[in-house]
Amino acid sequence: MASHDPRANPADSYLLFGIAMPKVRMITLVVGIALAITLPFMVSNFAVFQMTQVLVYAIAVLGLNLLTGYNGQFSLGHSAFYALGAYTTAIMIDRYEIEYYWTILPAGIVCFIGGFLFGLPALRLEGLYLALATFALAVATPQLLRYEHFEEFTGGVQGIDVFKPDSPISGLNADQYLYFFVLVVGALLILGAWNLVRGRTGRAMIAIRDNPIAASTMGINTSLYKSITFGVSGFYTGIAGALGAIVAEFVAPDSFTFFLSVWFLVGMVVGGLASIPAAIAGGIFILYMPNVSEEVISLFFGNDPSAKALIWVAFGLFLIFTVYVVPNGLAGLIRQGIAKLARRPGA
């Protein structure tokens, strides 16, 4: 009997509206996948483009969440890894005429190495100091990308144009094709992250987050795991950057400022720490929240361009609100809701 299996999660025996929890999760997953596949055929091309962008952000937020949510290290510098991935792809496509689908993995690998190397010193930089070092990285990145001696590769201030791939499948237009391309890559990455955090490595990551001293007493090589986590996090964010370059059809230094890192942080905090679905919620939030608040603001201020700045004020206030009221983000809120509604069988 399942209930006597010592490995079984006791929460799995609970019922939500009379349905067993594992089944609830399965239904959510199936509905989610069905929506992800059917939606692009029902909405406009622009909406498909936005959904693609959501997926790109979600991958980047997932990368940051692996680092912060599961391993307890802070980064304000993930815009730099995103930029590194985006430029790797753009340079490979533009300068070396490599097909776009061959550039995604190399971009990820370059960022894995970049992340690992930046993570190595991170062994000595506890918490706050790491935040400071990554803050410096994010602030310095645009200037580095503009640097004239790299201009041959990076295109300097101008950046690089990337052309949107044509759809090889008849029945899908270019936007829809790109969406499914990003969706497949994203799904693979989510699967990878899910396996990673449930396995030995994931347990080590979480142990280091919760109590580094106890973790090292248990024989976990904390320095190695911290660096590897930084590398994996860079890998995810780099791939997001690579996909983002193809989706935006353009890379330029000013797209990768410190404020991009802030976006990822916002997405992670609002979605919720240490949760994979939360990354998708975070991606949705950072794409649609500015649009929605822009509409609300234009109701009050008309088309005054400086009123757009109020979006960021709203973002900031929302962040503070989140930290105060829902510190576990949307994922925590849903978990709480389920815990309230779920009933023990027979109760």
């Binding site: 912060t68 802070f74 304000l76 706050l128 935040a131 404020f259 802030v262 942080l265 905090v269 720490l273 700045a309 109020l310 979006i311 960021w312 004020v313 973002f315 900031g316 206030l317 962040l319 503070i320 989140t322 930290v323 510190p327």
Partner: peptide, 16 residues
């Protein structure tokens, strides 16, 4: 993390 997030939020608010 909460502190870092609040500092970042303040940065956003003052800037915007």
């Amino acid at each position: 993390l909460s502190h870092i997030v609040i500092f970042i939020a303040l940065t956003l608010i003052f800037n915007a």
